[in-house]
Structure formats: C-alpha cells, structure tokens
C-alpha cells in the first residue's frame, strides 16, 4: 500500500501527469493574459496541450557534430529535475509529497538544473545561435540566482527552518509580503528571470539569436524542455505564493492566489521592454543582490 501510494504520488498526483497538465494550464493562463494585455485574442485553453502533442509527434532532428548522449539526455534530465523539485513543494495547495530538513535548498538547485541543462544543450548544439543563447542563459543564471535564493531565504530565516513545510506553516499566520516586501519583489522578478520571461528573455531573443540555446531542438527534445519550463513555472509560482502570500490555507483559495500572482507577472511581461544581457546582469548585481542582502541583514539585526 505504501509503495502504491508513493508511485501514485510520483506518477499521477500531485506530481507526474497532473503536474504536467497543471503546468500547461498555467502556461495557457500566462499566454492568454499577456495576449489580452496586448490587445490580442490569445490561444484557446488547450493550445499548450495541442502544441505538446504536435511536438511529440514530430521528427526529431539531430544536428551534425553533437554529442548524442547529451543531446537526447539533457531534455530528460531537465524535465526530471523540474518534476523532482515539485515533490518538495505544496503543489496546488496540498502538502508536499516529501519533506526533510533543508529541502528548500535541494528544491532551488533542482530548479536550476533545468537552466543548466538548457545552457549545456545550447553549448552542445554547436550552432552559433545556440552558443550565444547558452552563454546568455548561463550568464543570466549567475545574475538572478543569488538574489532569488536570498529572497526565499528571508521567510526561511523568519520561520527558523529550511524545511519548506515548516516555513509554510509559519507563513500561514504571517503574511511575508507585508513583513518583507523587498524580498517579495525580488522573488517575483527573480522568478521571471528564472523562467526567461520578458524582460529577461535575452537568452531567447528571437530577433537576434532565433530561439537561443534551444534553436537546434525539435520534436520530442523541444517538447520535454517546454514541459519542464511549464512545471518550473508551477513550482516557482507555488513557492513564491506559499512563502509570501499567506501560506497554503484552503487549496481553492491558494489556487486563486497563484493565479493572481500570474496576473501580475503577465502584466509585467506586457509593459516591460527586453533588457540586454549586460543590463540584466547589471540590474541584478547593482540593485537586486544588494537589496536582498540588506533585507537579510535587517532580519539578522532585528531578530
């Protein structure tokens, strides 16, 4: 029974299939909202699913001069990383499937795995656009990663635990957005950087480098990366909502809060202009990192 439950929790619910479908729904909500902000009609609700099915049924082209194992292995690893991260996070407002002391750090590194895989995949593709894109992806990772980590560390320090479920218990009663507003802004913008959403879409700026690191990917590989990204979106939005917007509470209420966060993100995506990679890095280190550090300092002093 125990094993069956574990398998169910990994394959179907809350992780696995339902998480992937949830990711597509979030992706649709994001695309639809951005479209409405931009005065467009936007996709129908099943469009991300249709895209995925189409990609999965397409031929996968392997470019010359790539390391085969890496080329086909990286998309799987990226998706696996994102799905594993979901196990430690209260997805859809449910209790995390697994929990141990220090799982926050593990989750954050599992989330970065996707970015690392994207960068490596670009480097491995041996195409000019991919290499420039990979360089930008990894450069950007070093820009937002530290401030994002520090921003999530704020609630952890307040809750005196590095275990996600403990922190969530604490934030249930303490709205961190009020107590640590700076952290919330950095976490939200850091999440947009992690997801390479505008204005942090320089790594996949289509007008310069086609699709960036994933230019050479097609078919299944591309689909896996896309699914990984959608899952990462769910995990990221869930984490930020649970940490800063009053914990989990009622799952339905929690879902509404994540969608509210998505609305804010879609709005930011619509009104902001893409930053050049040097501007992205400059902004994170000149403002983001310093503000996050100041907040941590304030926390230590006030405690």
């Amino acid at each position: 029974m125990e094993t069956l439950l574990a398998i169910t929790s990994i394959m179907f619910f809350p992780a696995g299939i339902s998480l992937i479908l949830g990711g597509m729904l979030y992706e649709w909500a994001d695309r639809k909202l951005v479209a409405r902000f931009q005065n467009r009609i936007g996709p129908r609700w099943f469009q991300p699913l249709a895209d995925t099915i189409k990609l999965l049924s397409k031929e996968e082209i392997e470019p010359l001069g790539v390391n085969r194992a890496l080329f086909f292995g990286l998309p799987v690893l990226a998706l696996a990383g994102a799905l594993t991260a979901a196990l430690y996070v209260p997805i859809f407002g449910l209790r995390p499937a697994h929990s141990f002391s220090g799982d926050l750090i593990v989750t954050l590194y599992l989330l970065s795995l996707l970015t690392m895989c994207t960068g490596l995949a670009g480097w491995n593709s041996a195409s000019r656009f991919s290499i420039v894109g990979a360089t930008r992806t990894l450069t950007q990772l070093f820009a937002y990663e530290a401030p994002f980590l520090l921003a999530l560390l704020g609630p952890a320090m307040a809750a005196d635990s590095w275990q996600i479920s403990r922190i969530v218990d604490y934030t249930q009663t303490h709205w961190m957005i009020v107590l640590q507003p700076v952290g919330f802004v950095i976490a939200l913008i850091g999440l947009m950087g992690k997801l390479e959403l505008p204005p942090f879409d320089a790594p996949e700026a289509e007008t310069e480098i086609v699709a960036g690191a994933l230019t050479e990917y097609s078919g299944r590989g591309l689909a896996l990366f896309h699914i990984g990204k959608s899952v990462e979106m769910v995990v990221g939005v869930t984490l930020v909502t649970a940490f800063y917007l009053g914990g989990i509470g009622n799952p339905l209420f929690f879902l509404a809060k994540t969608l509210g966060l998505l609305l804010v993100m879609a709005f930011l995506q619509s009104v902001l202009v893409r930053l050049r990679i040097d501007q992205t890095v400059g902004m994170w280190w000149r403002a983001g990192a310093i503000l996050a550090l100041l907040q941590i300092l304030a926390l230590i002093v006030l405690k």
């Binding site: 931009q38 505008p198 320089a202 700026a205 893409r274």
Partner: peptide
C-alpha cells in the same frame, strides 16, 4: 518595438 522585445507597443501601433 518588436526588435526591442516590446511586443505590446508593436501590437498597439499595428492596431
């Protein structure tokens, strides 16, 4: 605007 990655302005001006 589109080249700059500012698609909202692109959509509005073309409208």
């Amino acid at each position: 605007a589109h080249e700059a990655g500012f698609d909202t302005l692109f959509m509005y001006s073309w409208r």
